[in-house]
Structure formats: structure tokens, C-alpha cells
């Protein structure tokens, strides 16, 4: 019955006139879009192509000689570079830890803030503050907070009777300190996105769920969680890519120490490209990092899209 009804409304073949019109309209559309398209393409593509170009050269900024073609030697060298491998590993560790904790905490907090208690709105605004501060400043502040000689964290700890904790100078602890700082800064953002998503969930679905006899946990796992999936994926993409690119905290807090335990990929890239400054090698690193970011984000985007399509 449904099908027969839609037949009434189907438009059938377009008439020749309207087809001509459509072609013309499409042509005009392209013409109008073209300048912006070219500019965008240039702006987006040129730096990437240029990075690829540099990555195939030996180019030391400190030397007067012009760049010298070096083929894939930079990449070859990267392949054997233990420091590079370490930095990729540290980056992944950092992303998994920081983003994982941010997601869980932010998710939980969103539910807390979703309760209609007095003062929640104000509290919500306050919790947003950390994400408004520049990461560099956050890094600086926490560097001093965690500092073993002057840091307020250690000061309190010692006052409470503990012994000084080497927050930034002991391998695993240093990474955790940076993770904690990142969590401090970004959990509110994650929370806010989830909060907005929660607010947007239709009330009627929950009524249906209760009528259908779903228990609290069933409602969470069968209704809330799947409905939040797009929000979860989007936050994951934003945070994971952002965490992979971020170097400010490492820069301000540990410079990759101790012994490279917190040397994330962007920091190694930064020291190579800006301190050494071996541009070719840094560019090769940047290209690989771009590939990593792209793969990572595509994984998530595909998840999102797969859902949209079958929907």
C-alpha cells in the first residue's frame, strides 16, 4: 500500500527542457564555486605537496647550501630511527591514556551535570574554564605545580606527611603527569559535548524504553549509549587527532624527558625541524605523522559514515 502510494508522487522522466536547464544550472554552480574551490585546494594541498617535496631533500637551514635532492633517504633513516619509533609509541600511549580517561570522566560528568540540580548551570560554566586557557599556559602552570622544588602539589604532599614525588622526572610518572594535565584541560570539553548530546536525546524514547520494560542498565546500554554513538565518535576524532598533534604540554613540562619517556612525536618533530634544524628529516616525519593522523581519523569517520548509510 505504501509502495503504490509513492508511485503517485514519483516524477517520472524529466522533460528535455528541464534537463537542459539543470545542466546549465550545474555549470553556473561550478563557475561560481570555482574560485573558492581553487583557493581552498591550493591552501590545503600546497603545504602537503611542499612537505612531500622537502621530505625528499637534504635541507639544513643552518647551512648556506640550497636543499639537495636525497630521494627517500630521509624515510629510510626514519625506519631505523629508534627515537622515532619510541616517539610514535609514546604518542600512542599518551593518546590512549589521555583520551581514554577524558572520555570516561567526561561521560560520567555529563550525566552528573544532566541532573536538574540547582547551581548545575553555573558549575557547568565554571568547569569549562580549563579548556579556554592556552595549552602553553596550562603546561607552564602545571610545570610549576608539579615542580619538585617549588611545586604546590609536592608542597601539599609534604605538608601532609608524604615524601616528594618526582612527578616530571620519573618515567611512567612523568607521562602520567602530562596525561593528568591534558585530562584536566580537556575533560570539560568532552563533558560539554556529551552533555549537549544528552540534552538532545528525545524524552519519548526513554518513555518507550520504560514501557518496554528495560531496566536502568538496559536503558543505558541499549538506548543511551547507541544514541550517543555519533557524539562519542566525534569527540574521539577531535580529541585523538588533537592529542596526537599536541606538543605544548611536553614542551613546557618535560621536553620529552626523562630519557625520552614523554617524547611524543610532535616534540621530536619540533626539535628536529626547529632546533637542529634538519628540515628534510622533519618533513619526512611530518608526512608520516600526517599519514597517521589521516588513518586514525578515517577509522572513526568510517564508523560514523557506515552508520549514516545504513540508516
Amino acid at each position: 500500500m505504501e509502495a503504490s502510494r509513492t508511485d503517485y508522487f514519483s516524477l517520472g522522466e524529466p522533460k528535455p527542457d528541464s534537463m537542459k536547464l539543470a545542466v546549465e544550472r550545474r555549470r553556473a554552480t561550478w563557475l561560481l564555486i570555482a574560485p573558492a574551490f581553487v583557493v581552498l585546494l591550493g591552501l590545503n594541498l600546497f603545504p602537503i605537496v611542499y612537505a612531500l617535496y622537502i621530505s625528499c631533500h637534504y635541507w639544513m637551514l643552518a647551512r648556506p647550501q640550497p636543499p639537495r635532492f636525497a630521494g627517500l633517504s630521509n624515510y629510510q633513516e626514519l625506519f631505523f630511527d629508534a627515537r622515532f619509533r619510541n616517539s610514535v609509541l609514546v604518542s600512542l600511549k599518551f593518546i590512549v591514556l589521555a583520551v581514554g580517561i577524558e572520555m570516561l570522566l567526561g561521560f560520567g560528568l555529563a550525566f552528573v551535570f544532566n541532573t536538574r540540580l540547582r547551581g548545575m548551570a553555573t558549575l557547568r560554566k565554571l568547569t569549562l574554564l580549563p579548556s579556554l586557557v592556552m595549552p602553553l599556559v596550562v603546561g607552564l602552570v602545571w610545570f610549576y605545580m608539579f615542580n619538585e622544588n617549588f611545586g604546590i602539589v609536592n608542597w601539599f604532599w609534604v605538608v601532609l606527611g608524604g615524601t616528594r614525588v618526582p612527578f616530571l622526572t620519573q618515567g611512567a610518572l612523568a607521562l602520567l603527569s602530562i596525561v593528568a594535565t591534558d585530562v584536566w584541560q580537556w575533560t570539560p570539553f568532552v563533558m560539554l559535548v556529551f552533555f549537549a548530546a544528552l540534552q538532545a536525546l528525545p524524552e519519548y524514547v526513554y518513555e518507550a524504553a520504560r514501557i518496554d520494560g528495560l531496566s536502568g542498565s538496559q536503558i543505558f546500554f541499549r538506548v543511551t549509549l547507541p544514541l550517543l554513538r555519533p557524539a562519542i565518535l566525534i569527540v574521539l576524532i577531535i580529541r585523538a587527532v588533537d592529542a596526537l598533534r599536541s606538543l605544548e604540554l611536553v614542551f613546557m613540562m618535560t621536553k620529552g624527558g626523562p630519557a625520552g619517556d614523554t617524547e611524543v612525536l610532535p616534540w621530536y618533530l619540533y626539535t628536529t625541524g626547529f632546533m637542529s634544524p634538519d628540515l628534510g628529516y622533519a618533513a619526512a616525519m611530518a608526512v608520516l605523522m600526517l599519514a597517521l593522523v589521516t588513518i586514525l581519523s578515517q577509522l572513526f569517520v568510517r564508523q560514523l559514515e557506515s552508520r549514516e548509510v545504513t540508516r
Binding site: 528525545p202 519519548y204 524514547v205 518513555e207 518507550a208 538506548v223 547507541p226 554513538r229
Partner: peptide, 13 residues
């Protein structure tokens, strides 16, 4: 009790 809603209240996902 089973309920039928005016706005259907189906699970969109």
C-alpha cells in the same frame, strides 16, 4: 502495559 505513542517513539538507532 504496552503503549503506542502519537509520535511513534521508535528507537531511532
Amino acid at each position: 502495559c504496552a503503549m503506542i505513542f502519537e509520535n511513534y517513539a521508535l528507537y531511532p538507532h
